[in-house]
């Protein structure tokens, strides 16, 4: 058999899962969709002693838009659900628009948002999207919980703020300011492959077309999602013309990222992609923000 032996525990409630994690902690691995964990187990790169399967914990599979205007996404909500949910499309259209880029339909039917976020693959779309949306993550352990901002959750390559006994249980995406345009663009060698680089942008315009807020976040140009500062700041207070947008994306690509080359893309090529994708994403976000005033 491919994976090494392990003890299999399938809790049927969150309380039970937290209890199991409290007991096994470091020796246990949480099994969500399994689309990243099971491959590494098949290669025996990971040989966890205990597998805690969360697929029976229905409390974690809830998806709702609460009174606070935010979107509450249980950690076990699957990618295909995010892709097709009218609630997600209405409350967090950036998420809905990004989902078709996340792997293939067969993977999206199993993969979960919590699994993807906690796995923290630098090439994954969802971590960067959640940083861009300023989402908050609820981390629970037996007897307590804490909230962590997406931007603080990602610490290093495949490393997050999660402690061994903790479970990422819920993601809350706050509502966007009015008249905010959004966009996501990536380049991958084939549709559904991991992207060589990607960019998410959010731009808020006032009625005169002046930028009030701008966010530009990259994936796969560093070990964790890269939230640009200078590039975004260059737009705020200004009317984002195509030239200004191009200059901002150039700033991001030249000064704010430090990509490492890999077999699919050299560092230089990733910088080139960051400039092009940043420009496209910002431009589309600006266009959408303008359209929101027209309608």
């Amino acid at each position: 058999m491919k994976p090494a032996p392990f003890e299999y525990i399938a809790p049927q409630s969150l309380a039970e899962a937290l209890d199991v994690m409290d007991q096994y902690g470091y020796d246990a691995k949480l099994l969500a969709g399994g689309q990243s964990l099971i491959p590494v187990m098949n290669f025996r790169l990971a040989q966890p002693a205990v597998i805690v399967d969360l697929n029976g914990v229905s409390e974690l599979a809830r998806l709702s838009a609460n009174g606070d205007g935010g979107l509450h996404i249980g950690a076990m909500v699957r990618h295909s659900q995010l892709e097709h949910s009218p609630t997600v499309a209405a409350k967090a259209p950036l998420v809905a628009e990004t989902m078709p880029h996340v792997a293939h339909p067969q993977i999206r039917n199993r993969g979960t948002i919590g699994g993807s976020l906690a796995h923290a693959d630098p090439a994954a779309e969802l971590p960067a999207i959640m940083v861009a949306l300023q989402a908050r993550f609820r981390l629970q352990r037996m007897g307590g919980e804490r909230w962590v901002h997406a931007v603080d959750f990602y610490q290093a390559l495949f490393t997050t703020a999660l402690e061994p006994e903790e479970i990422l249980v819920e993601i809350v995406v706050p509502p966007l300011p009015a008249h905010t345009g959004y966009a996501f663009h990536e380049v991958a060698r084939r549709h559904g492959d991991f992207a060589q680089a990607g960019a998410a942008a959010l731009v808020t315009l006032d009625k005169r077309g002046v930028c009030r807020e701008a966010r530009l976040v990259y994936l796969n140009v560093g070990n964790i999602p890269v939230q640009t500062q200078e590039a975004a700041a260059a737009l705020v207070g200004a009317t984002p013309t195509p030239d200004l947008i191009k200059a901002a994306a150039q700033t991001a690509a030249q000064k704010e990222i430090d990509p490492a080359g890999d077999i699919h893309a050299s560092a230089d090529y990733k910088r080139h992609l960051a400039a092009v994708l940043g420009q496209r994403a910002l431009q589309q976000a600006v266009t959408r923000a303008k359209e929101s005033w027209a309608s």
């Binding site: 491919k2 299999y8 399938a10 399994g34 689309q35 099971i38 491959p39 098949n42 290669f43 597998i51 399967d53 697929n55 295909s80 293939h104 339909p105 067969q106 993977i107 039917n109 199993r110």
Partner: peptide, 27 residues
């Protein structure tokens, strides 16, 4: 491939296509 890349092992799980090499039978 047995790591979720090739799609040869795709089956329907409760009506939806999934990779059978990326699930444990016990599930």
């Amino acid at each position: 491939c047995e790591h979720g890349v090739c799609g040869a092992c795709t089956i329907l799980f409760d009506g939806e296509p999934v990779r059978s090499c990326l699930m444990f039978a016990v599930q």
